[in-house]
Simulated assay, not measured.
Amino acid sequence: MDGHHLTEQSALGQTLNSLKFDSAALAPEQAFFRWREELSVVFDTTVDNYDFERRFRGSLETFHLGGLLLTKTVSGRQRFTRTHRTIARSGIDHFLIQAHAKGGFRGAADEREFEIGAGDICIFDLSRPCATLSTEFSNVTFCLPRSALEPLVEDPEALHGLVLPAQSAAGILLTDHLLSLFRAAGRLRADEAMAVGGRSMAFVAGCLQDAASRSGERRKVRAALSIQVRRFIEQQLHDPELGPEIIVAALGVSRATLFRMYEAAGGVASYIRKRRLVRSLADLRAPLEAERIADIALKWGFRSEGSYSRAFRAVYGLSPSEFRAGVNGPAFASFQDVEDLRLGHWVRNLALP
């Protein structure tokens, strides 16, 4: 047995898939290895000592709700890390919203340190590094693509490592919503899951927006402008001339306002470069004959293959050609050679980056 179980709930000729993984079905010496494989699309996981690894227990149950994934995770003390290399390997550009029913963790998302307990909500931007150390825990997680959440919130850059305390209104609403939705997910037909998933996404975004920003008409105007700027940047990533001057001229926003918007991201140029690199990952993961690296570089607004390679190595620690070769090579083999890791397949295909 491999610890996986794929179920189908059928009604009126429609099906809703759920994926279950339980290490209890595996031999003790295999349990943590397969758990690490299963989670590798999102996190690298480690435990503190070999004895714990041999006694390891962990379970996942995931429902596919159209544009998002809903997962319950139960396990013991371990470390979860997402480095620049993990980000490159996974090739995903999603957000995680976690509600903790039991236990928690402490850690850091970029420079933001936090501690999570039962009832708290925490948000992770999977295009950015993070590291946590958990206690024994049980949580329910929304995984949704950036393209779905980003247009609904004013400042997505502020979400990474954001904690909504258990006693806050947004924390109570989101925790109750995620836990209740998971309890009901197994009873949903596929068409119901699509509708519920879309409404849940809007509800989650509303709670995050209220928690991360102040109210008021002036704030709403800034939120609308921020969304407009991000959409313009995404549409113009192919243009090597894209920068503050282009954005200011096209949208009529002041330079001071633009710089304030992207201060947390290290500046406008840094944000644009990061988005270009993240968007290029999907092209590098494609078959080798799909596109030349030089063409990928030009496609995403880099002036040359050399400038693209230098920027890529500075962030991910290897060149684009090394990454492309490694995706199907021995350096990544332990994460790529298990075809039945359906969670990874679901996460990667949730939406195009």
Rank of each mutant, 00 (worst) to 15 (best):
F203D: 05
R55C: 13
P165Y: 01
T62R: 02
S215F: 11
G67K: 05
T46L: 05
R275S: 09
F32G: 04
L242G: 02
V42Y: 00
E150K: 03
V153D: 04
L16H: 05
A205H: 07
L258P: 08
W346A: 14
L162Q: 13
S270V: 13
P287L: 11
V229Q: 06
V163E: 05
E53F: 00
S138W: 01
A195F: 03
E113A: 12
R189I: 00
Y308F: 14
D295K: 15
N328C: 10
S215H: 13
F32D: 02
T46N: 09
L152S: 10
D239M: 06
S23I: 04
S40Y: 01
I233H: 02
L6V: 14
T71E: 08
D110L: 01
A25T: 05
V347F: 07
D210V: 15
F332H: 14
M201V: 12
Q98S: 08
I116C: 06
R231Y: 05
S147R: 13
N349V: 06
R230G: 03
A249K: 13
A325C: 12
A88E: 06
S180A: 14
P330D: 15
V327R: 07
L277F: 01
N17W: 12
L96C: 06
G67N: 07
R199V: 14
L277K: 02
F259Y: 14
T7M: 13
R34Y: 06
F335Y: 15
E263V: 14
V229T: 08
Q78K: 14
T141Y: 01
E217L: 15
D191M: 04
R285L: 08
A99G: 03
A169D: 14
F232W: 04
R292L: 13
G117R: 08
